[in-house]
Design a protein around this nucleic acid. Structure first.
Lengths: 214, 214
DNA sequence: CTTTATGTACACCGATCTGTTCACTTAACC
DNA sequence: GGTTAAGTGAACAGATCGGTGTACATAAAG
């Protein structure tokens, strides 16, 4: 599996000092524990349906401490999004064992581990919908992230020899978002459909001469 | 403009007896006024951020009346979605002046009237994200709607002579959802991008022999 | 006119939400 | 060991939420 798409947020997950000898030990890593709990709860319940009380309970952090780290919930949500996947989709784009064309296709592969649910919805889309305010810092992060992903796809498309790499990048980005949204609504995996479309678009955009290389 | 996508909900909009001589006359159309206010507020603010108090105020309906028509907010939300666009995308699919192929493409055209914002997000996707519970009646309506749209697209794809109409229908449906989600996140219209992809897919799926007809 | 829905006005409930206050404890590091 | 920074627990604001109760008004239909 390549992307680990939105599953545990970002590389590393929980730092090891989060639980001590007896399982409880709420000591020093408060901030990371809060963000870790955010990832879990915002994914499972949504942002608006997750109260600060519950969040602090799961993070095993006192409310006081939470509000010393984050001025308010909005700031926490913003940081939650900002800290997501710091090397944007690095696991896909940095795979030097794949040709550029293969990397573009790999972005659509679903983790597909044994006992797991369908792909969770992209947290950036979810946040944009839940917060419902384009000026919210988290909404800005979401926009930035989406544009960055499109840019990286475009960059890879250029490497792959696409005729209009920017256009192909934006198209593939739209496919990813469509798969994410549709997976949520249908409650059924839609990434394979998106992958099929991507294959068509890629073959259509890369001239035969360039295709022979990869 | 073909679709009037999600703008005022469904044909008719407000019934004319909603405001009387002096502007206030809250008489008999309570239920419709409530649903009309729901469409406006849920679109502008989201479901979770719209309280029943505000909704009743906008609908010019007493809270008591609202709860005589709808057992609880969940039921109102469900009905709000159920009443949306009763003849699913009829404005596009029923256009007999267009060839099947043209109808498929018309589904991606943006209203494009003069002074207007970007296309509002598909209310079904929004509800699925906001409610965050696949078992919620509204989430079921959303799923049903999405499957119905895909089916109608597939049907039209078949008319157009597509090789795998079901597959093309699902692909085009994913594009619509992608455009909707991405428009929201980027705060910029993404339907043209989706339309461009649709054109490629359609041309790819309809054999040249069938294409000559339309 | 009288009946019967339908709608109104407004106070009120308990629950939950974000955010704050207090005096106190603990962990880490020199 | 003593200093300092980080974290604790529980109670408590104040607002808002979804939802009710009660008593009254009005429109339409017989």
């Amino acid at each position: 599996m390549y992307t680990d798409r939105y599953r545990n947020g970002y590389a590393g997950g929980m730092t090891e000092l989060e639980k001590g000898p007896q399982g409880r030990r709420r000591g020093r890593g408060a901030r990371e524990r809060i963000l870790s709990a955010s990832r879990q709860l915002f994914r499972d319940q949504g942002i608006n349906r997750t109260g600060m009380d519950q969040l602090c309970a799961v993070a095993q952090v006192s409310k006081r401490t939470a509000y010393q780290h984050f001025a308010d919930k909005d700031e926490l949500v913003a940081e939650y999004l900002r800290r997501f996947d710091p090397g944007i989709m690095a696991a896909v784009f940095d795979r030097s064992d794949l040709t550029p064309r293969e990397r573009l296709l790999a972005a659509f592969e679903v983790p597909a581990s044994g006992t797991q649910d369908i792909t969770p919805m992209c947290p950036y889309i979810a946040a944009s919908v839940e917060l419902h305010d384009p000026r919210h810092p988290a909404s800005r992060y979401a926009r930035d992230y989406k544009m960055t992903v499109a840019a990286r796809l475009a960059e890879t498309a250029r490497e792959a020899g696409a005729a209009s790499p920017e256009q192909l990048g934006e198209q593939l980005a739209l496919l990813l978002d469509g798969a994410s949204a549709r997976t949520r609504v249908l409650n059924a995996e839609s990434f394979p459909t998106a992958a099929a479309i991507a294959a068509v678009l890629i073959d259509n955009a890369i001239p035969a001469t360039a295709r022979e290389v990869g």
